[in-house]
Design a protein around this nucleic acid. Structure first.
Lengths: 177, 177
DNA sequence: ACAACAAATGTTATAATATAACGTAACATA
DNA sequence: TATGTTACGTTATATTATAACATTTGTTGT
C-alpha cells in the first residue's frame, strides 16, 4: 500500500471544522494576520498598530473573546486603554470582515477569509469554547429560499449553533470509561 | 366564478409570515395568552399575575421588546419593579417556551406555540421592527445535516435573519414612486 | 518642509443590559 | 397551623457598549 502523503505533517485543515488541541496554531495566526495585512493594503484602509494588535489578541485562540477581555490584555501590556479604544478597533475589524461578532456570546472571533461577502455560520462548542465558522451552501440556500418565498430582503444573518463538538464528546466518553 | 370563502373575515394567518398592519391583533394576544395558561396548567407551573402581565406586555405587538422597556411599562402601571423582577419573569417565560430571546437585539418576543420543542428561526424587519417566527424544515435539516457530518451535538440554535419584510418593501416603493 | 485637512486615538462620562445576594411574602401540603 | 417551597422585593453591582469632545497622528497639496 503506497503512502498517502506525509501524515507527520500537521494540517491546519480540520475535517470536522474544529481545530484539534495540538494543531499548529501559529500557522492560523500567521495566515490570518498576513491575509488581513494584504487585504487592508488592497482596500486602502489602515491596519494600524492598535488594530493589528487587537486582531492578534482575538486570534490568540479559536474562542470568541469579549471586548473587556481584550481591554484587560491591552492593559496588561501597558497600553492604558479604555472601552472606546477597543470598540473602535472592533468596529474597524468588523467593517472590514476581519472578525465576526457572536451575538449569542457578546464576543468576537477572527475570520479566516476576509473580504469575501460570506454568510457566516458558527458552530460553538460549550465545552472547549471554540467556534467553527462555516459556509454551508445548503443552509444558506435554505434561508435564501425561504426569504425569497416570503419576499423578505435579507441584510444580515446571525446563525449560531451551540452544543458540543466531536472532539469534546470523545473526551467526555474517554473520561467516563 | 364562485366565492372562495368569505374574504371580509380577517385572517390571522399571514402568508408571508409578517402580520399586516390592520390584522386583528387582539386575536393574537388572546390566542397566545390562552395557550400559555393551559400550557402552564398542564405542566403544573404557575403563570402568576406578574408573569402573565409580562407576557401580555411582550405580546403588545409583534416587535421584540427589551427588558427595560417592559420594566418601564410595569412602572407606569404603578408596579414598582426593579430589574430582577423582570428578568425572573423573562427567565420563567423562556424556560417554558412562552417567549424567545432575540440575541441580535437583546430583546424578547412572544411565542405562538409553547411547549413544542421547536427550532425557532426569525426573520426580523428593520423597518417595522416586527419579527416573524418560522420553522422551516429545510433550514433546520440543513443545519442538522451539517452537524451530523461533523459530529457536532446541537443544544441550541440562534437563527436570526435581519432585513426588510415584503410589506415594508412595498410601502417604500409606494412612497418613492 | 509646512499648512491644512482628515483619520485615528485618548479621555471622561454615562447608557443599556443583566445578575448576585439576601430578605420577605405568598402559596402548597401535610 | 406548622413547614417547606416558590415567587417576589430590594439593594448593590457586574457586564457590555456608546456619546461627546480633546488630542495626536497621518496624508495631501504646495
Amino acid at each position: 500500500m503506497p503512502l498517502q502523503g506525509d501524515e507527520s505533517v500537521k494540517s491546519n485543515k480540520h475535517p470536522n471544522n474544529f481545530p484539534s488541541a495540538d494543531h499548529d496554531h501559529q500557522r492560523c495566526v500567521d495566515s490570518a494576520l498576513g491575509k488581513a495585512e494584504s487585504y487592508c493594503t488592497a482596500r486602502g484602509v489602515r491596519l494600524t498598530k492598535l488594530r493589528h494588535r487587537v486582531l492578534e489578541l482575538i486570534w490568540a485562540n479559536h474562542r470568541p473573546v469579549g471586548a473587556y477581555d481584550l481591554l484587560q490584555q491591552l492593559t496588561l501590556e501597558g497600553h492604558k486603554a479604555s472601552p472606546p479604544t477597543i470598540y473602535r478597533s472592533l468596529d474597524f475589524l468588523l467593517d472590514n470582515g476581519l472578525i465576526h461578532r457572536i451575538n449569542s456570546l457578546n464576543a468576537y472571533v477572527g475570520c479566516d477569509h476576509p473580504g469575501l461577502d460570506h454568510a457566516a455560520q458558527f458552530f460553538i462548542c460549550g465545552a472547549c469554547g471554540q467556534a467553527a465558522e462555516l459556509e454551508d451552501t445548503k443552509i444558506d440556500s435554505a434561508i435564501s429560499g425561504h426569504a425569497r418565498r416570503i419576499g423578505f430582503c435579507i441584510e444580515g444573518k446571525t446563525i449560531e449553533i451551540s452544543g458540543t463538538c466531536a472532539n469534546c464528546q470523545q473526551q467526555q466518553r474517554d473520561r467516563q470509561g
